[in-house]
Design a protein around this nucleic acid. Structure first.
Lengths: 343, 343
DNA sequence: TCCGGATTTGCAATCGATTACATTTTTTGT
DNA sequence: ACAAAAAATGTAATCGATTGCAAATCCGGA
């Protein structure tokens, strides 16, 4: 007589699906009317609307999105291509995207490309299979912009570079790094090492450009020997700092193109007994949460990560929904945040 | 005579969709055969297979997943519920999930709940609308486990607590924190403050339990006055540390239930001229990347974040695919990582 | 009360792929 | 070489919601 406890049995698990037809029957209406009552309530009588809602409750109806998506050829899903979700800056951009997507009724598919062209290619396919209505890219294109222009679906960049075409969102990377370096120069530094990124990385290129511009503006000769190429990871900042310590004459300041490498560098310096900022000043870029809480607190450039994601998301959805494609490049304001590490 | 450059015109943008019927015609076969050639190639002649592949190329066919999903009532999508994607630990778990999902042919829908019941509720709906085949939760339930048991769809926990039911993945939070505290006691500390989390947080509860057990095992009386409740954010670790500094007698060590608050605490101590670890030892929990690179480097417990995500993902997909539900709680190994901050 | 127009509702086709079942083709065994 | 079994292919129904069009209902005005 024991009751059957098969809450756990796989699959059969799903409560028998109730369809719009069940609702229609329960309400004594046609499926068409039910559909309209739910999607365009104003097209339906007060009375029927009530009947439908009651029936929906009664049979515990949940519309089958798969069916709706097929019929309408829309998935209400956005594909977010992230080079690495574990990177705090990208995680914040993604959070901004997700929040906005939620507000506008969209879901977010997460595609972590790990800088692998294979994975990127695969994810691109997802859009072509109608699983997503559009794409938000967080890394600027490797290839020249032209190659992407042809994408047969809406693509928006949330963290563009100088070459990124519209619609897209970015900050003025060149100008920002210019400010950072100018700030150090103003404090008397003239020999400033740079921890950059991979040679071909678009953000690295932009920021390095700002670095050179600032030096030039101050009449300081650019010395390629002072530029090291890291991988954006802390470890590579750590290693770069050791190389910098070995230089002679020793630089008095280090600019890093992101916060993580700056933090790695600070650790390397501390390990060698070099004091920051009194012996060497260090700056980062991005203003991730840890920047404010590192020891010493890191001077850096704040990028409005969440806002960038949010804006990109708005642009994409507007595009998808045909409120015309926004042909602008949105440059959001950055802020030089001066903290302890720059003296 | 100018060519029409309307690469940008919204919507119409999508290349005319080619369907399986187009392929069938191009190959001189029926849609059924084409479908089989693509999905169960072994059920079809070598020759037809070739014809189909050629035709697919010729018309540049991409199967419409929306149609497939509807027909098969599967979405090959997993919903990942994260309390906050900006939290590095959760980001790493998510990366592990995504990698595994990718391997097994699933996509990841990102649901950032921000600890809001409303959002959690909303996302739960998504599964009921067939938009996802199952759910991976990264935060243990707030409510007693029973409430969830009834979920009519597969749910797996990636970061469970002691009460989390199977199938799920977790570490031994109690044991891990016990080790941390025992480690400090072995170094001579007897007055150890704790920075915990919100009162009702499951992880906080488990870890605090370990803290008490270790004290008890060493014959040290538990002093509730030494336990502060934070929010997992760095700022709250910072504030907690200031409170701790005001205690008298002053604790000689601080255990935090996550790395971020520990880092916040270290900053507060540094700001007050209190040296870590010589004046006060500090420990964290999680071993996020920043722990190894903070100054001083943080003693902490390594949780295999990516593996936890990967394992949870495997469990969920196995369940979904009916390879029987795994009724086990998988407890992955943790590691006490001793670095500078504990002396 | 009755008519014309506006509004509400219903019928049935549709989205594109999958699949049960029927039919045709190939293979196997003798 | 032939029948029977096996394999390959085709036909058409199906998944569940949406929507063009037709039918029914409602409303106000004469």
């Amino acid at each position: 007589m024991g009751e059957r406890m098969d809450a756990g049995s796989a699959k059969g698990n799903h409560t028998a699906m109730t369809t719009i037809l069940d609702v229609a029957r329960a309400a004594g209406l046609s499926t068409a009317t039910v559909s309209r009552a739910l999607r365009e309530p104003e097209k339906v009588t007060e009375k029927t609307r009530a009947k439908v809602f009651k029936a929906v409750e009664a049979v515990n109806y949940r519309p089958n999105m798969l069916a709706r998506n097929l019929r309408t050829d829309k998935s209400f899903t956005l594909l977010v291509l992230v080079p690495g979700i574990a990177n705090p800056f990208f995680a914040n951009v993604t959070a901004g995207i997700e929040a906005t997507a939620w507000k506008r009724g969209y879901s977010v598919l997460l595609g972590d490309t790990r800088d692998s062209p294979e994975r990127e290619e695969h994810y691109a396919r997802l859009v072509e299979t109608r699983l997503a209505d559009g794409v938000i890219q967080l890394s600027p294109d490797y290839a020249p912009a032209e190659s992407r222009r042809q994408a047969p679906y809406p693509v928006v960049h949330a963290c563009g570079c100088e070459l990124t075409e519209a619609p897209s969102v970015r900050i003025d990377n060149v100008g920002a790094m210019h400010e950072v370096v100018a700030h150090l120069i103003a404090r008397g530094h003239r020999r400033i090492a740079a921890i950059s990124g991979p040679q071909a990385n678009a953000h690295a290129i932009d920021r390095l450009k700002g670095y050179r511009q600032a030096l030039e503006a101050a009449g300081i000769a650019f010395d390629p020997g002072l530029v090291l190429h890291g991988s954006f990871r802390m470890q590579s900042g750590f290693e770069a700092a050791r190389e910098i310590l070995a230089m002679s004459p020793r630089p008095t300041a280090i600019v890093s193109i992101n916060d993580e490498m700056a933090i790695g560098a600070i650790q390397a310096l501390a390990a060698q007994g070099v004091s920051v900022p009194s012996d060497i000043a260090v700056t980062g870029f991005d203003d991730i949460d840890f920047a404010a809480h590192s020891t010493p607190a890191l001077t850096t450039v704040r990028q409005p990560a969440a806002e960038m994601g949010a804006k990109a998301c708005e642009l994409l959805i507007d595009w998808i929904e045909d409120k015309a494609r926004d042909e602008a490049v949105h440059i959001l304001p950055h802020t030089l945040v001066v903290r302890e590490s720059s003296g």
